[in-house]
Design a binder for these strands. Structure first.
Lengths: 345, 345
DNA sequence: ATTAGCACTCGGGGTCAATGAGTGCTAATG
DNA sequence: CATTAGCACTCATTGACCCCGAGTGCTAAT
C-alpha cells in the first residue's frame, strides 16, 4: 500500500508528535507544527483518508487522531529515521558494562539498568543459556574442612559454581573419586546429561563410598541444572508507572513481565528476526493479552556466535521507536561481545 | 498513658477492622461487630475521647475514624496479639530457603520472594557483609589457557568469586607468585586492606613480573571489594500497586526503596532493637519523607553471631502488624541459621 | 454513666448547561 | 480536481447545583 508523499509526511508527524506529547493530534496543530501552506481542512481530508486506511484512530469524535497499531507499524517499517547512536551514549554504555565483564549476570543487570534509564521503559533480559553446550571442565575447590565449591565450565563459556557441604571430612581420596567420576562420565558430554537420576545410579555403583560422595554429586547435578536454567531479569518496572496508559493496569503488566515462563514463550514465539536482528511487536501484534496495549522490542545477544539470551524493552505503544531501536541494538551487540570475551578457543 | 479496658478494646477493634477493610470505622459498625451491649452513642463518646488523645483521626467530619500513627503505635506496643507462626507456614518458608543454602544471595532472594508473597508488602533485604571479616582463604582456579577464577573466603563465611583474564598464558609460575603474594600480604588480614592502592605498590615491587600479574591482582582487589559492598534486593514492588494509599505515589516510594544508599541510611539509623529484635516504624516515625505514609518493619539476621544484613517489609501504615511481625521474625531467624551453616569452626 | 433523639456536616454521585477543541460536510474557488 | 472557507455537529471536560446517607456531636432525659 503506497501512500502519497504528503500522507507519509503527515503520518510520520502525527506519530512523532503523539509519541512526544501523548495527546491526540488535531488538524490545526499539525498545520502549525509542520508549517504547511495548506489549510487545516485539506489536512482533515487527508487525515480522514488515513483513518479509513486504518493508520489512525480517534479516541472520540471531537478529539484529534492518534496512530493505530497499523500506523505505528507503517511508521516503523517505512517512515522512521534510522539513526546511529551518538558516540557519547555509546561510551556511557561501554563504561557501564565493561567493569562487570567477569560476571555474566552482572553484565545483564547493568545492561538492564542502563536500558531502563535511557529509554524510560521496562527492560527484560535473560541470562545466557545454551542447551547444546557440553561440559568442558569441572573443578572441586576445597573451602573448609567439610566445605567445597564446585565450579563448572561449559563449551559455550558459561561458568557456574555452588557451595557444597559434605557429611564427613573432605579427603584427598574423595576428591580423587570425584574427579574420576566426572572425567569418566561427564566431561565432553552435554550438561543436560548430568541428571539427578544419572547421579543416583552412579552413587549406587560406588558401594560403601556412596554415602560420603552423595552430597558432592548432588551439588554437581545442581550446578549442571544451573547452566540450563536461565534467569529472567527485570529492570525499570517503575518506569511504567509514569505513563498515563498504565495508570490502572500497571500491576497486571508487571506481574506478567516477572513470570519467566511467560516471557520465555514470548521470546521463543519469534525465533528469527528481520529488523537488523531486533523484533518489534506493536500492541495487538503481541500474542499475549497482557502485552496487547504495549509495545515490545527485543533481540538476542550472541556469545561466540551462538544466540544465548534475550534483551528486551517494554513500554506503551507510544514509545520512541526511532531512538529505542538503535539503543537496544547497540546494547545487545556489546553484551554479546563482552560475554564472548570469556570464551576461549 | 493508661487507657480504660473498654477504650483498649475499641482501639484494637478499630485498628483491626481498618486493617482488614481499609475503610473508616463508624460507631454503629463497631457496636455490631463487637456485639456490645451499649449504644452507639456511648461508643461515640469513647471514640471522641480516643480522638482527643490522638489515637484516632477522621478523614472528614461525616466519616468514621481511622487510627492515627500514634494509634497504630499503641496497638503494636500494648494491644496486638502476639502469635506464633503456624507450623505449615514455617515449613513453607523452610522449604523455600533450604534448597538455596549454598548461595547467600539466592537465600535472600528467596526470602524476599516468600515475604512479599505472604505479606503483600514490598520486601527489602541486604546481602551479608562484615567489615570486620578477615581473609581466610584465596584460591586461584584455572579455567582456561588465559582465564582463571579467583575465589575468596572470609572469616565470616562469605564466599565471593570472579572471573579474570590474563594477558599472557597462565603459568604454574604465575600461580605460585600469586599464592605467595596472597599468603604474605592478605591472609588473616581484613579484606578491606586489599585496596587497589596496596595492589599497585605490590605490583611495582614485582618488577618485570608485574605486567603479567596485574590482571590477577586487580581482580583480587575487586573480589575483596565485593565482600564489603552489600547488595540491596527488592521484591514485591508490584504488591504496593494494589493498595489504595499508593494509587498516586507508588513511583516515588518504589524509587526510594531501590536506592541502596537511602535504605542503608534507614537501616543504620536504627542500630539497636527492642521488639524481639525487630524494628517497627509507623508512618511519620520514619525519618525519610518518602516513607512517612508507610510503615516499615525490619530486622537484622546474624551469621554465626554477627549481625550481617537486614530483612525488611514496607507497606502502607494499614498493614497487619500482628501477622507480619512473627513472619518476618521467623524468616530473619531462618536466614541467619542457613547462612551460618557455611561458616566453619 | 448511658442513651435516645436530633440537627448538622460533608463526601460521593447524579444531573445539567456551558465551553471548546476538533470533526465532517457542503458549496464555492482557482 | 484539489483546495478551502464556513458551518453545523459531536462529545469530553468542567463547574454549579442538589440530594442522599453515613456518621458525627450535643443536649436533655433516664
Amino acid at each position: 500500500m503506497e501512500l502519497s508523499e504528503r500522507k507519509k509526511r503527515l503520518l510520520a508527524a502525527i506519530v512523532e508528535r503523539y509519541i512526544a506529547t501523548g495527546e491526540p493530534v488535531g488538524s490545526k496543530t499539525l498545520v502549525d507544527a509542520l508549517g504547511l501552506s495548506v489549510s487545516s481542512a485539506t489536512i482533515r481530508n487527508e487525515m480522514a483518508e488515513l483513518s479509513a486506511l486504518g493508520y489512525l484512530e480517534q479516541p472520540h469524535t471531537s478529539a484529534g487522531r492518534i496512530p493505530s497499531d497499523a500506523g505505528y507499524r507503517y511508521y516503523v517499517d517505512y517512515l522512521m529515521g534510522r539513526y546511529e547512536l551518538p558516540p557519547n551514549e555509546k561510551r556511557l554504555i561501554d563504561a557501564k558494562l565493561e567493569p562487570a565483564a567477569g560476571d555474566a549476570r552482572k553484565v545483564l543487570e547493568n545492561a538492564g539498568h542502563i536500558l531502563a534509564e535511557m529509554t524510560h521503559c521496562a527492560a527484560v533480559s535473560t541470562t545466557p543459556a545454551d542447551e547444546a553446550a557440553v561440559v568442558r571442565r569441572v573443578e572441586l575447590v576445597p573451602i573448609g574442612v567439610r566445605t567445597a565449591m564446585i565450579v563448572m565450565l561449559t563449551s559455550s563459556g558459561l561458568l557456574k559454581s555452588r557451595i557444597c557441604k559434605t557429611l564427613s571430612e573432605l579427603t584427598v581420596d574423595m576428591a580423587e573419586s570425584f574427579y574420576n567420576i566426572v572425567n569418566a562420565n561427564f566431561i565432553g558430554k552435554p550438561a543436560a546429561a548430568m541428571t539427578v537420576a544419572k547421579i543416583q545410579t552412579l552413587a549406587v555403583s560406588l558401594g560403601e563410598k556412596s554415602l560420603s560422595m552423595t552430597p558432592l554429586l548432588v551439588a554437581l547435578a545442581d550446578v549442571a541444572a544451573m547452566t540450563e536454567r536461565t534467569e529472567l531479569l527485570l529492570e525499570g518496572q517503575s518506569n511504567l508507572l509514569g505513563y498515563r496508559e498504565y495508570e490502572q493496569n500497571a500491576y497486571e503488566l508487571i506481574e506478567f513481565l516477572r513470570r519467566a515462563e511467560a516471557m520465555d514463550r514470548v521470546f521463543s514465539e519469534h525465533p528469527s528476526s528481520e529488523n537488523g536482528n531486533l523484533h518489534v511487536l506493536i500492541g495487538e501484534e503481541n500474542l499475549f493479552r497482557e502485552l496487547q496495549n504495549s509495545s515490545m522490542i527485543f533481540g538476542k545477544y550472541a556469545i561466540a556466535g551462538h544466540e544465548s539470551g534475550t534483551l528486551g524493552l517494554v513500554g506503551p505503544t507510544r514509545i520512541d521507536y526511532a531512538r529505542l531501536i538503535p539503543s537496544l541494538r547497540y546494547i545487545t551487540e556489546i553484551v554479546g561481545k563482552i560475554l564472548s570475551e570469556n570464551v576461549e578457543e
